[in-house]
Design a protein around this nucleic acid. Structure first.
Lengths: 332, 332
DNA sequence: CATTAAGGCTGAATCGATTCAATCCAGTTA
DNA sequence: TAACTGGATTGAATCGATTCAGCCTTAATG
């Protein structure tokens, strides 16, 4: 079926060791031999079998990327960054969507262990370090994605979500909003929890009333649901802050369908600043995170950990989110 | 470092063959032995080394997905579908962004061959079957994605792009537009070429004048460039048809920035019907393709080819695009 | 008691690339 | 001529899971 190193050796009338040297240490092979072997390789269309090499080495040139859902534009960008970062170092990336299901996460972790990936970029839906310790024990580096690592067992690349929640409320409060709905997903999602902390802090400091509306998933359909819930509130808030842009776009659609004027009656602020925030019906103000940059940085960090080995120092990199002001929160 | 089958055998005081049987044919192992070995496996935290197994078998449980760019929402959805389809059968997916560069494609194909993927889902930027034949020769199945295979050498899952281009122009023509700008990427992209054929056909039939505006990349920044080009046209067209929604959104932004009223002065029609088409500043009419479904179907097709082996019959599956009407082409 | 059958288990051989101690050989030196 | 040097090449051993021909028990049968 497939051409092996042995076949090349036979055809070029050299030993397997020489062929291997041609591939890996060409400088120690005599030029004449080198050329002959290289020609034979091309002739037979030989490509080394990665398994055999990796079996020998005990590690691969692959990493795993576990995210809740690539079709969430934030993670799409992160994934794109990861892929570019990995590609730069000649690594291939396994894409894994966990759908925020612990079960799927578990399954994927098993698959990745079996594939002997070199490292894993992980954005866990739920915190459970045992699996991460297990991977570590198996020599698989783990870098946390979009989530800070409190101890110093792993690298992490995250965004300061507490800060993000805080500046969002401070900004709305400065615009004169004192009755704000906070639309978010389950508390078990760390980013939600942290942004919530920032929200609560700023609310307390600014004397703002917060109405929390929690939905099970953070997509735009759930945002429309949230809009209904907002409309049923005893007193209508003057602003809505959403835990991500998909929710915000859903809320916007839901409110506009109910003839609520945005931003005149209700301002809407999103989170993530996805590409399309600016081309929404009413361009959406949002808290911006450098998603692509996060992906590249995380891949870099993970791979330098993989390649440095012992000498590696774990790092916690934290990006600061930024407010991007658009129509949906224009001053009244 | 890692626990091997041999370690388990030693610890459980059986032979390697028996441990292997416990894993793969538990029914032929005596119950007592079975339990003892299973316990030892758990105790030592043994996970079989995928490489060794795959080296033996000569194939893996992985597939490759090569797309121009996952951050293009159409491909994001496709990727999501592929991932789900593969996951259902316990396969893992390598994500590869070619950025429409033949060079990157070539590199990725090499990586995938080296990783001995079982199959590849490929959306080629440029048609060159030699690499595909090569993969085939190496026992790697290839299914074409979003592109029809003329011969019968591979499966393919595609959308009828000629039809899509045709219905777009027919629709605009029916609305009374007879001077239409066609904004698209390089002719070398097959989808662009095909949609262009449909456009030309319908234009001829409907006596519509088409002004082609070609840009190097199909993103929204290039759309804004295209908008400038449109504004410099000797006579302003009354409608713009774009080869994808990103271009269309860019064009929309560009035109609106120049105070052109959409759709009153110029109607805009996109292609792909991405999630955000409906929440654009002016909700975007678009030609809709079942992206997620395409992904799932392609993965299914590829994996059934991989698993059926000889008995497999190549299939060409073709989805029909549909027009989705929104504000950006409302009747005047 | 001898023979046969069958279930349980063993362990050497295998997949393909890499490594490294051993060998080969042309050229140099004494 | 013999001894030595060092660059080039060789090929058996290795990584870990799987396979399968063959071995060992035990039980059943004539």
């Amino acid at each position: 079926m497939s051409v092996s190193l042995r076949d090349v050796a036979k055809s070029a009338k050299v030993s397997v060791g020489t062929v291997s040297n041609v591939l890996n240490r060409p400088e120690i092979v005599a030029e004449k031999t080198l050329n002959r072997v290289r020609e034979t390789i091309k002739e037979l269309g030989f490509v080394p079998n990665g398994f055999a090499r990796q079996l020998r080495f005990g590690n691969s040139r692959t990493i795993g990327l576990i995210v809740p859902d690539v079709s969430n534009p934030f993670f799409t960008e992160v994934a794109r960054g990861v892929e570019d970062g990995a590609n730069k170092r000649d690594y291939a990336v396994f894409l894994c969507n966990s759908d925020e299901s612990v079960q799927k996460e578990e399954r994927y972790i098993n698959v990745l262990i079996e594939q002997q990936v070199r490292g894993v970029l992980f954005s866990p839906s739920d915190i459970k370090s045992n699996r991460m310790e297990e991977m570590k024990g198996r020599g698989i580096s783990v870098t946390l994605l979009d989530q800070e690592q409190k101890g110093n067992n792993h690298c992490s690349v995250s965004v300061d979500d507490i800060y993000g929640g805080r500046i969002a409320i401070e900004y709305l409060s400065d615009l004169g909003h004192h009755d704000i709905a906070w639309v978010c997903g389950p508390e078990s999602i760390p980013q939600v929890a942290e942004r919530g902390i920032g929200v609560a802090k700023a609310a307390k400091a600014g004397n703002v009333k917060i109405e929390t509306i929690r939905v099970p998933l953070m997509n735009s359909a759930q945002g429309e649901e949230a809009a209904k819930a907002i409309l049923e509130l005893p007193t209508l808030p003057t602003a809505v802050f959403c835990a991500n842009d998909l929710l915000a776009l859903g809320v916007m659609r839901g409110l506009m369908a109910a003839k609520v004027k945005v931003p005149d009656q209700i301002s809407i602020l999103g989170y993530d600043d996805i590409k399309f925030a600016s081309s929404a019906a009413i361009p959406l103000s949002s808290i911006s995170q450098p998603a692509y940059q996060i992906g590249v940085t995380a891949a870099d960090l993970l791979l330098s950990e993989c390649e440095d080995g012992e000498s590696h120092q774990h790092q916690q990199i934290k990006f600061q989110p930024k407010l991007v002001e658009r129509e949906s929160t224009k001053k009244r």
